[in-house]
Design a protein around this nucleic acid. Sequence first.
DNA 1: TATTAAGCGAGACGGTACGTCCTGTCTTTTC
DNA 2: GAAAAGACAGGACGTACCGTCTCGCTTAATA
Lengths: 203, 203, 203, 203
Amino acid sequence: MSQNRTAPDATRRSERSRRAILAAAFELVGEVGYSKLSIEAIAARAGAGKQTIYRWWPSKGAVLFDAFLMLSEGETGTAALPDTGDLEADLKTVLRATAEELSDPRYDGPMRALNIEILNDPVLAADYLQRLDLPMKEIKKERLRSAQCAGDLAADLDLDVAVDLLFAPLLSRWMFRSGPLSAEFADTVVETALRGMRPAGGG
Amino acid sequence: MSQNRTAPDATRRSERSRRAILAAAFELVGEVGYSKLSIEAIAARAGAGKQTIYRWWPSKGAVLFDAFLMLSEGETGTAALPDTGDLEADLKTVLRATAEELSDPRYDGPMRALNIEILNDPVLAADYLQRLDLPMKEIKKERLRSAQCAGDLAADLDLDVAVDLLFAPLLSRWMFRSGPLSAEFADTVVETALRGMRPAGGG
Amino acid sequence: MSQNRTAPDATRRSERSRRAILAAAFELVGEVGYSKLSIEAIAARAGAGKQTIYRWWPSKGAVLFDAFLMLSEGETGTAALPDTGDLEADLKTVLRATAEELSDPRYDGPMRALNIEILNDPVLAADYLQRLDLPMKEIKKERLRSAQCAGDLAADLDLDVAVDLLFAPLLSRWMFRSGPLSAEFADTVVETALRGMRPAGGG
Amino acid sequence: MSQNRTAPDATRRSERSRRAILAAAFELVGEVGYSKLSIEAIAARAGAGKQTIYRWWPSKGAVLFDAFLMLSEGETGTAALPDTGDLEADLKTVLRATAEELSDPRYDGPMRALNIEILNDPVLAADYLQRLDLPMKEIKKERLRSAQCAGDLAADLDLDVAVDLLFAPLLSRWMFRSGPLSAEFADTVVETALRGMRPAGGG
DNA sequence: TATTAAGCGAGACGGTACGTCCTGTCTTTTC
DNA sequence: GAAAAGACAGGACGTACCGTCTCGCTTAATA
């Protein structure tokens, strides 16, 4: 079970360096964009040696990814979508919030960087899926399942498809900048998609 | 309207070099992936000088983009979605084809590379929007409009949203590799989305 | 007698371009130094096409050399060293003038450039020898021969060696910047060298 | 006393790389000549990165110069001209050796390259003067001083001029290829120059 | 309480690619 | 048919980073 190289001893890892590196990575990607982001710059900004980065992360994308995880620390697992009983209103709240976050210049740069790495690197993509995307999808599905039990959604609805239908359009607009990420857009997407998911005999 | 630098004289441009460079770029991105793609390698493979690339394209992404345009040459503007009268069947045909294309390893690599460049470079994104995305969206909207006239879609449906709802889920799955790009998935997306777009009184 | 390439027709040669190119070369080498001198810059400054330079000169050094010839046009062949009857005084006059010229920043740069080309290119060196150095050496030897006839120099003196002995020290100091090119230095060289060249029984 | 850029840490310098680079530079300049010598080729031949050259040397000429210094390592300071008591014979020995060295194709190329750099670069010229030319001149002057004490040279002879008078003619012939660097030439120069430097009353 | 061994900052190293500049050739257009 | 203009293939420039590799230094666990 040993690595080909002597594995680093995690107990001795400097928490100070770890945080400084992740913070520096997040800052820099926001300042200079993904394509200009370099390990050298991260190390310099963090006051760390390059080797410290190479020792603990397999790629630049992994650093970036961990920087995101650090931000969303505590959120995952505990968080749940709002459930006021009104599915449409709850989803509109969530999509509007998502739209706003994607529009925020503080998050736009780093988010694009992470997406680029995911596009590039299948390993990182799998990691992202497992550790961020799937948990968040489960949270979304949980809310839809609740609505399904309440009879607000068709019983045979594929919840995976439902989540994609609801969230992918926003992502697509953000990615290609093909339209404004407005509250109106969020609302229309929710309204149209939900109409397709209601029980057949619904009123 | 003049450039800040003396612009190259397009009338003297070598068509032979242009084609060789675009072909080399497309080949290489498929072989080594985007992150390993270099201007140097493109020039070498094309038997061209690096300066010839820098003279005519502002960025690596622009080369890649033109390589895509060269492939889809003639398609844009002339093409239209199938219109058998059965909207659902027609859309399933198109989405299945799209899913297949995205699964094809010959297109997966270059497509990811192009998307990365678009994520990175707002200028290229705008160019892409104008020259590829908008025309293709118009074609899709044309088919939906035809269905709208036939009473198969709600009269007040926002066709832009409709297109996003239909096509974004596929793109999202491809991008994050979050599920199989199967014909079943394409069908389910079309069925669910269309149900939400039909006239209220149901035909 | 034909060249491997169709030789240019000298009768059609543009005198205007020739002069502009030589002038531009001379100016530029003074401004930016030899190592930064480029054919492109010469052509641009002269308002000439690069091909015009390549058509008429075999190398950058040849252009530079012709630029020098243009300057000394008319001098060669006609000129002679002063001959007042006092050899020592005459030589001091000449060496002092040479020292001054080598110190002049207008000539220092171009002269170094020419010397560099000569060091580099044996063909150009031979050309230089034939067309500039030998004629000038002959002029100097003529003056020494006159002194020899007058009994001021040893009858068996090798005049080639004599010229080198008189002029090389100055050149060496200039080249290596190993000391001031002063009138005193010129005088001392002449006095010392001449003492060694006088007839044995001389007073 | 600090540099404007963070100076490299000389204690960490790789002696292996240094020697390999200097050796490669010396070899290459002999093989392809100065004008075809490139940093790129030196690095490749030495198995070194280009940055390693740029880190430690300010210019191509400086590399070449150090390559020369490496060759003459140990010679400077310790060496002295032969002193058999017979000045003329000793000088003839030295000049003949110099002439032979300048004729040796192994040294001709590199030597020309170094001279070109010296002509080009005043900073390098000053360095050369200080570290090679002046020490060697001092050695030559030492021999002349010894002769002066013995009464073989005029008491008021300017030894700097004397050295130039003796050695510059050889250099000049080599540089312009204006004549054979023969033993006869060396002898004649020594005989003629020395005759001008002897005490007035002749011993 | 010393010893020791890992992580650490620092940064030199062999490399690759960058984007710029220039070379020498070729072609097009003008005179 | 020479000349201005400038695109072309090619190649070196000097810079920026890559990922690897020592260096001393600090620091936590072991002897």
